[in-house]
Design a protein around this nucleic acid. Structure first.
Lengths: 216, 216
DNA sequence: GAAAGCTTGTAATCTACATTACACTTGGAT
DNA sequence: ATCCAAGTGTAATGTAGATTACAAGCTTTC
């Protein structure tokens, strides 16, 4: 077996061009996040990355090309970092807590929030980007969670009609508390403790609901 | 320098200026939603609204002034239309279902989605807008729901620790299924039936959770 | 070690607006 | 009827930024 089937982090070759490309993408990330697509300027990106405008155009064609390349690279990194392997035998409380803490923590990082904002804001322009992001990101996390929920349902621990729907709802619930607030309010910066507390509430709600039930 | 900061539905006088103002705001809404803040052009707005560039500038000062006026008017309309009066005596299933259907239906209208997208996308620029939107919109709906939940908890129907948090989570849960998907995917256009089904699932989850419990 | 092919820096081009200036018209209160 | 504030159309003005052109300077490969 030569190398891992997946991506990233090949470190050996790094030709000059590759280095340039990385620097461009990094600077592009910064500038696009700070200013938004329209307001970002190619010259500014070159200034931060070093290198020359000409090279930038040679590598990415035009502003849109650079933007798409940057977004797809980042979306990949972001969603990859949200994965958690869930053994079918992990008790459901633990499994849900782990997946929720992991993805909420990651999403609350400023860089993630801003990327998310940027993607949401794209709207009519670049409809593909948002779609691709959803397919690679949220949908894949949901799918993994759905499989896990199915296992736990078979183990008799929980009872759900549609695991995919349930998975999606759980993820949304977990994100809702903090991430949605943070999206609208840049001041709002919850710490690890807030995250744990919020996740606990969500897991509990997801499992038990709020209805009063007869004493056991 | 914009004009009077105030608002609302007085219908009698409608001077020439008021008509112009309305036309400008309507056209501004269209253009900003279609193109985003940066890409929208003042000239385009005048073309659609009729009237003259000069008048537009006289009424709103500059592009930012027009934008803020438009956003605040729209945010107000949107959130106002999301209100539902909940009597303290309505059974919790009914109350939750009504509030969820109402707000999800409203939010799924294309105009609402795009406004929401625009606001989310603002980010660093105009941090106030997003904040004001949250205060006037989501927060007020949550507050109303929280009061209702408190009533129902006192009636012994449900059991919650923090009504405000619970209200917020319920709203998020209700929106999560359809609205979040629709935000990322413009193709996704659920109908009234989908909404009802989704809300039913959410209400049920919120009340009962998914955990299997001992037979009564 | 020299040609071929990227890179670089800088300086055009070309557009697309925001914003103003101006000269003129018009609605409606006096 | 008259007058004034507000509205109109058109044409500056000025800036900003995408995209290209050009004339050199490195790197790499044969």
């Amino acid at each position: 077996m030569a190398r891992t089937p997946v991506q990233v982090t090949e470190d050996a070759p790094k030709s000059r061009g590759d280095l340039r490309r990385e620097a461009f993408l990094k600077a592009a990330l910064e500038v696009f996040l700070e200013q938004g697509y329209e307001a970002a300027s190619m010259a500014e990106i070159v200034t931060r990355a070093g290198g020359s405008l000409t090279t930038l155009y040679n590598q990415f064609g035009d502003k849109q090309g650079l933007f798409l390349a940057m977004i797809s690279e980042r979306a990949q990194l972001l969603t990859a970092s949200m994965f958690v392997e869930l053994s079918a035998h992990t008790p459901v409380e633990i499994g849900l807590t782990r997946i929720a803490e992991q993805s909420v923590t990651k999403l609350l990082e400023p860089a993630s929030l801003e990327l998310y904002r940027l993607i949401l804001g794209l709207g009519a322009k670049f409809p593909d980007v948002a779609l691709a992001f959803q397919k690679n990101g949220p949908d894949r996390v949901s799918a993994a969670l759905a499989a896990y929920l199915t296992d736990r349902a078979e183990a008799g621990e929980i009872e759900i009609e549609d695991p995919v729907e349930a998975a999606y709802l759980f993820i949304s619930l977990a994100r809702a508390g903090l991430v949605t607030r943070a999206l609208l309010n840049p001041e709002f910066r919850p710490g690890q403790d807030d995250i744990k507390a919020s996740v606990r509430t969500c897991v509990n709600l997801f499992l038990n609901g709020v209805r009063v039930r007869p004493a056991t």
